[in-house]
C-alpha cells in the first residue's frame, strides 16, 4: 500500500524536522492535511513554536520594573578584575 497519510507520531517528528530543515513538498502537504484534521498535532506544532519563541526571548518587557537591581560597584570591580586576569 502506498503510504499516503502520516499518523500523529510521524507528523510530530516531521513537524519538528520542518523547524530544522527544508522538507520536500509532498511531506509538507501530508503534514498540512493531517493538521487540518487533528487538533492534538496542531497544538503540538503551536507549542513547539511557543518553546522556540520563549527561549529566544531576550528580556522581560522594557517597562517591567522587576526584577530590580544592578551590580554593586564592588561586584562590578570584582568581575572586571576576573576579566582582566583571564586576558591573555
Amino acid at each position: 500500500m502506498i503510504h499516503w497519510m502520516f499518523n500523529c507520531k510521524e507528523v510530530a517528528k516531521k513537524v519538528s524536522l520542518s523547524m530544522d530543515a527544508a522538507l520536500p513538498i509532498h511531506h509538507r502537504m501530508m503534514i498540512t492535511i493531517h493538521l487540518l484534521m487533528c487538533k492534538y498535532c496542531n497544538r503540538f506544532r503551536k507549542q513547539l513554536m511557543i518553546l522556540r519563541h520563549a527561549v529566544r526571548l531576550e528580556a522581560l518587557s522594557e517597562d517591567d520594573p522587576s526584577p530590580p537591581g544592578s551590580l554593586s560597584k564592588a561586584t562590578r570591580e570584582r568581575i572586571k578584575k576576573a576579566v582582566r586576569e583571564s586576558l591573555p
Binding site: 499518523n7 500523529c8 507520531k9 510521524e10 510530530a12 492534538y40 497544538r43 503540538f44 503551536k46 507549542q47 513554536m49 511557543i50 519563541h53 520563549a54 526571548l57 528580556a59 522581560l60 518587557s61 517591567d64
Partner: peptide, 24 residues
C-alpha cells in the same frame, strides 16, 4: 516518545493558556 502502537498520542497535548505574543 509518547505514542501508541498505531502512532496515536498516548497523552494528547493539552491546551496551553499562554499567549505567544505576550510570553514575556
Amino acid at each position: 516518545t509518547g505514542f501508541n502502537g498505531s502512532g496515536h498520542w498516548n497523552n494528547p497535548p493539552g491546551k496551553w493558556a499562554v499567549n505567544p505574543t505576550k510570553l514575556y
